[in-house]
Computed example of a mutant assay.
Amino acid sequence: MASTDPDLQERYNAGPRKASKPSGDQEVVRPVPIPVVVAGVAIPLIVLIVALMMVRTVGDDAAQEAASEPYAAVPLPAPGAETEECAALIDALPPALGDANQVALTEPAPPGVAAYRMPDAEPIVVRCGLDAPPTFVVGVGLQEVNGVQWFNEPDPNPAVTASTWVAVDRPEFVAVTLPEGSGTGPIQDLSDTLTATLDETEPNPAPAG
């Protein structure tokens, strides 16, 4: 006699059951091949290196262009700029002073002037035939570099970091303005050129006071 118990019938009509997969049929996870892993790491790294090299190349080109840019010299009172001595000095200047290379002057260029640029494009300016420095008076200290007596002319603006040195023992006053960090090479090379080009004279400072 068939059972009519509704609870029993419900228990047996709960629907199909999902059969469990035998342990022998479990899905196998295969490792990623080593070449694929290497390629995944190397390719982005190569792309990054190439991009950095391109950026560096562009930066180097811009720096070289700036370091060779002509210099716009500001005219200053220089009564001796067109003398034979100044013309001889400007013609004898070397293509480099220390780490600075000579660059052209923008026109109109004042006479008796030459310009150089450091690798970071900071200018070095040589001027011949200037008036005597107003602070070059009896008792001031001088510094000798390769046979040339130099006077350090202070800038009235304390914010200016460049220094100006004036050769005071030649027939014409010769000034060179050096940017901070240019080292001693530029003034040494310029001193050698002055010694070879212009005769030495006795410094003649103005009376003090």
Rank of each mutant, 00 (worst) to 15 (best):
A2F: 15
A2I: 12
A2E: 08
T4V: 03
T4N: 10
T4S: 03
T4G: 05
P6M: 11
D7F: 13
D7V: 10
L8H: 14
L8C: 02
R11P: 00
Y12E: 12
Y12D: 09
A14Y: 02
K18D: 13
K21G: 08
G24D: 15
D25Y: 13
D25L: 10
V29C: 05
P31Y: 10
V32P: 03
P35V: 12
G40M: 14
G40P: 00
A42F: 12
I43V: 05
I43N: 07
L45I: 14
I46H: 04
I46K: 07
V47I: 07
V47A: 14
I49G: 10
A51W: 13
A51D: 04
T57Q: 14
V58N: 08
G59I: 13
Q64E: 15
E65K: 12
Y71E: 10
A72S: 12
A73M: 06
P75T: 10
L76N: 06
E82T: 11
E84T: 15
A88L: 13
A88Q: 06
I90A: 10
A92S: 10
L97Y: 03
G98I: 01
G98H: 01
A100T: 02
V103S: 05
V103T: 11
V103D: 11
V103G: 09
L105C: 06
T106M: 07
E107Y: 02
P108I: 11
P111R: 03
P111S: 14
V113H: 02
R117H: 08
R117L: 08
P119S: 08
P123N: 10
P123G: 14
P123I: 13
I124K: 01
V126D: 02
G129W: 02
L130Q: 08
F136W: 06
G139P: 11
V140G: 07
E144I: 12
N146M: 09
N146A: 13
W150T: 00
N152L: 02
N152A: 09
E153D: 09
E153I: 00
E153M: 04
D155R: 01
P156Y: 01
P156C: 02
V160K: 01
T161P: 00
A162I: 01
A162L: 02
S163D: 01
T164R: 01
W165C: 00
E172H: 03
T177K: 02
L178M: 05
L178K: 00
P179W: 08
P179E: 09
P179N: 12
G181E: 15
S182T: 02
G183A: 05
G183M: 06
T184A: 08
G185P: 00
D189H: 06
L190T: 01
D192F: 05
T193E: 05
T193M: 04
L194Q: 02
T195W: 02
T197A: 07
T197H: 15
T197L: 14
E202A: 15
N204H: 13
N204L: 11
P207A: 07
A208W: 11
